[in-house]
Design a protein around this nucleic acid. Structure first.
Lengths: 342, 342
DNA sequence: CTGAAAGCGCTTACAG
DNA sequence: CTGAAAGCGCTTACAG
């Protein structure tokens, strides 16, 4: 075969064999030194290190990947990187991955089973080291296939059905309950809930938390479906406000719906917190900038992301028992929930 | 060598040779069919397709990468994915990349030369198909090394010094000029500019635009350094407001500094637009939610990202002339710039 | 502790 | 149009 496969760039040292020749050792020894094999003698090690230095050699990762049948990359499969919740998570994941030399592949599913499946198949094709997954479809069979293929999965934010996956979660029930109880404690009795998809763990749990708080206070739960999306929430809240008995307070279940809710309140000329008080779940950067500043219940996203990376790397390193970490949510008390004025 | 390299998962068809055996053709033919080589006869093609189907075969990308000395992945090197400007860009890039089967590697440099260099080296090690780069250091020599190694670069937002790179830019001079002129037209004479790093193209250009507008109106430019960062801008604006002659209007050069500026104004009890009018550059999702809604000048980020991907893929496909696309910026007229009340 | 050799699974120049 | 064969650059079981 005489085709010029490698474009023969003279600048960077090219193969492990060249290094071996310069160091006057075998390629195997070079590989061992590069991978920190402790058995290599000090003299050999020194010769190899010098040759690597001299040639400016960098290992060919593509060759390494093929040999090991594994890439060093980590897949992050989320619904949407534009959602500040996920931007923050990806950022924290990437910081850790970078320190350890792992590239990060970002995948947006838009909560659709089709894209989720396609991306998980891409992760299998790329034979990534592991996947951090905030699942749209927690029981999709492709998740089992990924695990079968030897790729560990850490569920982030939402559990997956397969027990072999690790999970890093927030205590959504208690979070939503805290939000609701805070409004009740402020004197509100008609607290409505702007929620989302029941099928998704997070949505179901937050609704549960809200309902528990209401029932314990002998109040009637009243929830509307904002679909976890800005525009759906906007329409739903607009309709809620038109009802004969509009609520005096709202718990909104995520930051996208909070955006929609704020738009709806503004359009309807309803003032916060005077006409309607509000506690939002999620704590995006703009929460303190809108007027009034929003009281929120947020997940400790950075710590959760750090945990997820650690679990993933442990798993890739061989741990076989799956683990599950639950973080408490955090209250950010600001101005949108002030007491009912009665 | 008898080590069990492939974990022998029975579920998925495994190699091209297996497909070849089932289809009763050579592996070369299977490869050709899989890669759409038009020379393969219809009968052979049909047999291969059937065998692929039957075995549920998926090509091993790792082997393909090694053979081609190229990965299909695309690197996106930006300052920070948490900045909504870049979240939006990454999202748009990823949507296109996904359609064509390219994984996307996301890299945050935090505007530091060290991280930028480390990531660009990672991109070389991974032999990515191409890099979309918003450079912290437009003249870093490593950029030339990347291009030398045959990896195309598309500069995004900011130019790079090497003329072999393509570029997708916004017309920052005109954008900042528009912002400034709008305030001047509204009756403001003391319009200050909250800007950032002169070294970076974008910062220099926006400042130029501001100064041109001021000079043409016979007004004295007055700019402060917000370092392109939230907290730096907050401090700088706080100081500006303490001056004996605080400005009556502000042009803020990016969304992070706008966040800091709004904080500062709030802390100082300065009302917008009554006490100080404001036009912000960048149009983040929360621009219409703060009170008052911000008048902004935004880049058409999605179109720019789409262009960047197209340029990159063209380049990877062989175009050798570099190209440069400049997009006009867009005005989003809202409430923060209302006329001076005099 | 070190080396020779095999092989990961593709793609493609070459021959026919 | 098709196949046999080489080779991309590593890693690692095996032998010594």
């Amino acid at each position: 075969v005489k085709e010029p496969i490698s474009p023969a760039d003279g600048d960077r040292g090219r193969t492990i064999s060249e290094v071996a020749r310069v160091a006057d050792v075998s390629p195997a020894t070079v590989s061992r030194v590069l991978n920190g094999d402790p058995r290599v003698g000090a003299d050999y090690r020194a010769r190899v290190t010098a040759a690597v230095e001299q040639l400016g050699y960098r290992p060919n990762r593509l060759a390494r990947n093929l040999r090991k049948q594994r890439s060093a990359a980590i897949g992050v499969v989320i619904s949407d990187i534009e959602n500040p919740h996920f931007s923050e998570a990806v950022r924290a994941i990437e910081d850790l991955a970078f320190k350890r030399g792992h590239p990060v592949l970002v995948c947006n599913t838009d909560e659709t089973p089709e894209k989720e499946r396609a991306y998980l198949e891409m992760m299998m094709d790329e034979r990534v080291l592991g996947v951090i997954l905030s699942p749209a479809t927690p029981d999709d069979p492709v998740i089992g296939e990924v695990l079968d293929s030897g790729i560990p999965i850490v569920a982030f934010d939402r559990e997956v059905a397969d027990p072999r996956a690790d999970a890093v979660l927030a205590d959504n029930i208690r979070g939503a309950r805290m939000a609701t109880e805070r409004l009740i404690a402020g004197g509100h009795r008609d607290v409505a809930y702007v929620g989302g998809r029941r099928e998704v763990e997070t949505g179901a749990e937050r609704l549960d938390g809200y309902e528990i708080a209401m029932r314990r206070a002998d109040l009637e739960p009243r929830s509307i479906d904002g679909g976890f999306r800005t525009q759906v929430a906007r329409a739903a809240v607009l309709e809620l406000l038109r009802s004969p008995t509009p609520p005096s307070a709202l718990v909104v279940a995520n930051n996208l719906m909070t955006l929609g809710t704020l738009e709806a309140l503004r359009e309807a000329g309803v003032r916060v917190p005077k006409d309607v008080a509000l506690v939002a779940i999620d704590d995006p950067p703009w929460a303190s900038l809108v007027a009034p500043a929003l009281t929120t219940i947020g997940q400790p996203v950075r710590r959760m992301a750090t945990d997820a990376m650690e679990l993933l790397l442990e798993r890739a390193a061989g741990r076989d028992q799956s683990r599950r970490v639950v973080h408490p949510m955090e209250l950010h008390a600001r101005d949108s929930d002030r007491k009912a004025s009665r």
